[in-house]
Design a protein around this nucleic acid. Sequence first.
DNA 1: CGACTTTGACCAGCGC
DNA 2: GCGCTGGTCAAAGTCG
Length: 310
Amino acid sequence: MANENHDPFHHDELNHSNFSFSQNFQGFDPSSHSTSFSDYLHGSMDYNTLSKAFDLSCSSSEVISSIDDNNTKKSSAGDLSSLVGISETPKSSESSSSNEAVIEEDSTNKKDKQPKLGCEDGDDEKSKKENKAKKKEKKVKEPRFAFLTKSEIDHLEDGYRWRKYGQKAVKNSPYPRSYYRCTSQKCIVKKRVERSYQDPSIVMTTYEGQHNHHCPATLRGNASSMLLSSSPSLFASSTSMGLEQRLHQDFFSQFLPTYSQSDQQIFHQNLPQPHQQQQQQQHQQQFQLRRDYGLLQDLLPSSFPGKQEP
DNA sequence: CGACTTTGACCAGCGC
DNA sequence: GCGCTGGTCAAAGTCG
């Protein structure tokens, strides 16, 4: 891996060097920790599972964290800053469990929303009551999965086609949050993209739902080989070659199938020539992130939106 | 002309 | 109940 001495993100600014998922995810207590980035990464799904995955070599990962819906109810849906650790104290313990209690839901439940104008009064009342009744039923959501990416561009190319359907200003942040839906028919997957205001180079992407179709784009170039070659050490710890392949296949096919291209755009456009080394370093870190995430994939519960059965 | 983005408005949930 | 905020809708605009 590239030398670690010149990576401000990695060590100086965000203090990733001591990062450990198992530690920080479970005992998340912002009031008693420093405000390093990693301290505030609180995680998703099964923390133990995650920690298992990242214990392998977390220090090298740029990211980037996975955040589940329950945890992000306040943070991701609220403000990314709580993830990054600079805003009001997050309510830390409210989500310590039940991460798997994600049940498939018709995410269109909000669409019962009445037409804005000219709705019949009687029916209006009626449907309002129905809506209330529905709400009283335990509200379940599509499983979500969020992860942080260091990137210059907000909407990362992931191979799927998305239609933007909304944008909102985020409280305490100069950066808006964008809402996307998968353009594929009958696919209800949504995606939310927002940028950290503390570190504008960090983008948080939240996926909600599961694609019910194949990725329209295929992985191009040598991304997967680069992926593996960028840090063979981690995969060396995984004894199965089949696993290894599945990992990055899953990851790329589900989220980042064409990422390598945007990577090149990102890092080659914006960095000055003298920093080529740093450039390469970042590049490698990006791939490492993806690889780690791929590993994560394999350990995810089946309810995870990006999880694909073999 | 279709696909997509922008943007203001609306609605629901939540905390006070 | 009220105000704030997140999430969504849908008309208008833009682009290829």
